[in-house]
Amino acid sequence: MTTLHQIDPIAFGLGPLQVHWYGIMYLLGFGVAWWLGTRRVRQGRLPGVNEQAFGDLLFYGMLGVVLGGRLGYVLFYSFDALRQDPLMLVRIWEGGMSFHGGLIGVVVAAWWWSRRHGLHLFDTIDFVAPIVPPGLGFGRIGNYIGAELWGKPTGGGWGVVFPNSDLGPYTGAPIEQLRALHASGALDAYARHPSQLYQATLEGLVLFIALWWFSRRPRPRYAVAGLFALLYGVFRFAIEFVRVPDADIGYLAFGWFTMGQLLSLPLIVLGLFWLWYSRRQPTLAPAKAG
């Protein structure tokens, strides 16, 4: 039995202020990152760094995620829309964030913080990498709740009918009518892959388990960052096959190659290179937090 998506993207209202689930997912992601990162600091996984310094790193990382993610989304996916509506750049609560842009923002923030604390950039990135996936998972759940970035049609019973997607003759029908049509099975042909949940599972849960297990003992510099880049790139590239590309971009080549896959290829290459390069790099031994 397919599922009809009926989740309100607004969690609750406080007078004129509307709190979206998308924003709550970001807060959850940052909260889990703070909890996991604090544990790693107490374990001495980044020698000379205490909890206060890590708090600064997390703050800079939050700015990098939000600013880089939004700028990346606009530049990579919606540049034409920006020219028509410049204010869309600041309406983050409506959704529209790019992982690749957010990643660049986090790297810039980590570089700035590392420079201030006299640390090698990749010691910081290796420390941060295992605490990032939960935030990615929560973000994809936010995409699902907001009924955005859905997948291609599927004949499987796990498919989801998104009311704002292409429903043929029923496109734009009231939700009450869609409920009745769905109960009768008339909408099953329009059910889609819940690609947001696929990504939440792979980029969030699986990536977290792999990185947390891999980094449970000291690894050479670049190794943890390399595994993160490689696995994320592979997961994202694979899921793009069942995900609908952005309407204003479509497929870039071959009738299947998307912008998401294009942006993931450098991550796969970098991940493989960093894993190879790490074999000749020093291993940062844990120490008591400073």
Results as ranks from 00 to 15, higher is better:
residue 231 L to P: 10
residue 232 Y to C: 01
residue 232 Y to P: 08
residue 232 Y to L: 15
residue 232 Y to V: 13
residue 232 Y to K: 08
residue 232 Y to W: 13
residue 232 Y to H: 14
residue 233 G to R: 10
residue 233 G to V: 06
residue 233 G to T: 04
residue 233 G to Q: 02
residue 234 V to N: 06
residue 234 V to A: 14
residue 235 F to Q: 07
residue 235 F to R: 08
residue 235 F to W: 11
residue 235 F to D: 04
residue 235 F to N: 03
residue 236 R to C: 02
residue 236 R to D: 04
residue 236 R to V: 08
residue 237 F to A: 06
residue 237 F to K: 06
residue 238 A to Q: 10
residue 238 A to G: 08
residue 238 A to H: 01
residue 238 A to R: 03
residue 239 I to G: 10
residue 240 E to C: 09
residue 241 F to D: 11
residue 241 F to I: 05
residue 241 F to E: 11
residue 242 V to I: 15
residue 242 V to A: 07
residue 242 V to S: 04
residue 242 V to C: 02
residue 243 R to G: 00
residue 243 R to Q: 04
residue 243 R to V: 00
residue 244 V to L: 14
residue 244 V to A: 13
residue 244 V to S: 13
residue 245 P to V: 03
residue 245 P to M: 02
residue 245 P to S: 01
residue 245 P to Q: 09
residue 245 P to D: 02
residue 246 D to H: 08
residue 246 D to G: 02
residue 246 D to T: 02
residue 247 A to E: 15
residue 247 A to K: 14
residue 248 D to N: 15
residue 248 D to E: 14
residue 248 D to A: 14
residue 249 I to R: 12
residue 249 I to G: 01
residue 249 I to E: 06
residue 249 I to D: 05
residue 249 I to V: 15
residue 250 G to K: 00
residue 251 Y to K: 05
residue 251 Y to S: 00
residue 251 Y to D: 10
residue 251 Y to C: 09
residue 252 L to F: 11
residue 252 L to W: 04
residue 252 L to G: 11
residue 253 A to N: 03
residue 253 A to Y: 13
residue 253 A to L: 15
residue 254 F to G: 14
residue 254 F to V: 13
residue 254 F to W: 15
residue 254 F to L: 15
residue 255 G to D: 10
residue 255 G to W: 06
residue 255 G to F: 07
residue 256 W to Y: 13
residue 257 F to M: 11
residue 257 F to E: 04
residue 257 F to N: 05
residue 258 T to G: 05
residue 258 T to D: 10
residue 258 T to E: 02
residue 259 M to F: 05
residue 259 M to P: 03
residue 260 G to L: 03
residue 260 G to D: 10
residue 260 G to Q: 03
residue 260 G to P: 12
residue 261 Q to I: 10
residue 262 L to C: 12
